[in-house]
Structure formats: C-alpha cells, structure tokens
Design a protein around this nucleic acid. Sequence first.
DNA 1: CTGAATCCACCGGGATACTG
DNA 2: CAGTATCCCGGTGGATTCAG
Lengths: 133, 133
Amino acid sequence: MSTAADRELPLPPPAGCRAREILEIIADKWSLYVVASLGDGPRRFNELKRSIDGISQRMLTVTLRGLERNGILTRTVLNVMPPHVSYELTPMGSTLVAATAPLIEWSTRNLSAIDAARLEYDARGARRTSSRR
Amino acid sequence: MSTAADRELPLPPPAGCRAREILEIIADKWSLYVVASLGDGPRRFNELKRSIDGISQRMLTVTLRGLERNGILTRTVLNVMPPHVSYELTPMGSTLVAATAPLIEWSTRNLSAIDAARLEYDARGARRTSSRR
DNA sequence: CTGAATCCACCGGGATACTG
DNA sequence: CAGTATCCCGGTGGATTCAG
C-alpha cells in the first residue's frame, strides 16, 4: 500500500501552469519570426512574407491572426487600390519581444555548446549514461 | 510526380535565426514543465511523472531524452534494485531556466490582458479591424 | 496585394501493454 | 522502478487554387 508516497503534490500545474498556455503564443513554428520582424517596426503582409524565409502565405495569415487575437499586434487596413495592410506590435507585443530577448541571447550564447552536446550524445549512441553504484 | 527527386530544404532559415531552432528545445508540450520541475533540484523518473500533471510515461521519456541530448540535463543510473534514475539540470540547463524566467513573468503579468484581447477579438467576430483611408 | 479555402502528408503525442 | 513497443487519432503546416 502507501509505501512512502505521502508526497502527494496537490498542485502539479503550479502557478506557472498557464505559462505553458502563454508559451504557446510563440511556440508555434513562425510566431517568433513574425514578432521579431515586427520588432523593427510596422510591416505589410508581403514585406513580412519576404522577410521570413520559407513561410507560406497560409501560415503567415494564420500566425498573424493568432497574434492579433492575443493582442500582440494590430492589423490596419488601408482602403486603397491596391489594398495595403499594415501590421504593428501593440505595447504588450513590444514587452513580449523584450521578454523573449534573454532567451534569444541564451540561444546564441549556447549554440555551440548545444551542438557539441548533441554530437557527443549521438556519438555514444545514447547507450552510455553515467552510472553509479 | 517525381517527388522523390526533390529532396531538399532541411533548414533554410537565415544566418542568425537559429534562435528558432533553440526555442524548439522548450517549445514542445512538456519540456518547460520538466525543466521547471528540475529547477527545484534533482528528481527521479516517477517523481517527475507525479509532479507533472497529465504527462504520459512515453512523453516523459521522450522529453527527457531530448533535453539530455541537448545538454540541458543529465541522466544518472543507480545500479541497485530496484533501479533508480536521477535527472538533474546541467549548468547550462540552469542558465536556460534563468533565461525563461522573464517570459514566465511576462505571461503571468499579461494573462488577463491576453484573455481580454481574445474576448474582444472573438466578440467582434474578427470582422472589424481598424481601417484608414 | 491580401487573403480564404481545399486537399493532404507528416508527426506529435495519448492509451495501452510488455520488459529488465 | 524505469523504461520500450504499438497502435492510432488529431493537429500542424505545406502546396495549390480561388476571390475581393
């Protein structure tokens, strides 16, 4: 029966639980690029598309809609011919960019270390892990 | 037709944009939880499983392997019966936790604003965007 | 120019069962 | 206790086409 499992944790999803939910705002494949690109200033649809290598029209649209819905950016339609649409970070969007900065910096600073770790891990065939007795 | 010949584009992103690649380390569904949980200290497999609500054995294993491969944590096997396996953050893993802190804080600070933005967006049926002429 | 719509391939990830 | 092995479903996202 209850061996030593009295360590029940009644709050597995801690206060930071919704942090995941928020992470999902930028954890998809393209949001980070879009947000980063808008960090330089307002952009139009095709400007964004050109600035983000490999993104499809569909995914750019989907990504922009999601970010707009979450209040990260605004969409402004210029009623002219041909139509222009300008995307711009909201104040909250700007603070998000700032909040991601440490992570970006961490990544650039640890790129080589991560590559090395991967090489080593793959080299040893994942067979060998440190063991003690 | 002849789709077999078009084997290309492993990763076309620009030079400095490996940030995405790094984000993928924690952008999956569970890594953040695992890393956060280990931030409190070393944990064993089932301890982690219990502390992370809803995670399956499979996904915990997969997530741990990925983080280990990337040098974020170490896996230590205690050769005893029954077997014990301890997971612990590497120094690099600890710095990662620190780098994610601003994002976590941002999320908690903007939760309500995001909810409000979503409600408003959904309320207006996404029909109305600001337009100028 | 800026999208919406459709079709579809891929794989992340859940449930379950088995192993050392 | 700490995994591995299968099966399988749904979401993500690419390519393409149509529309305002």
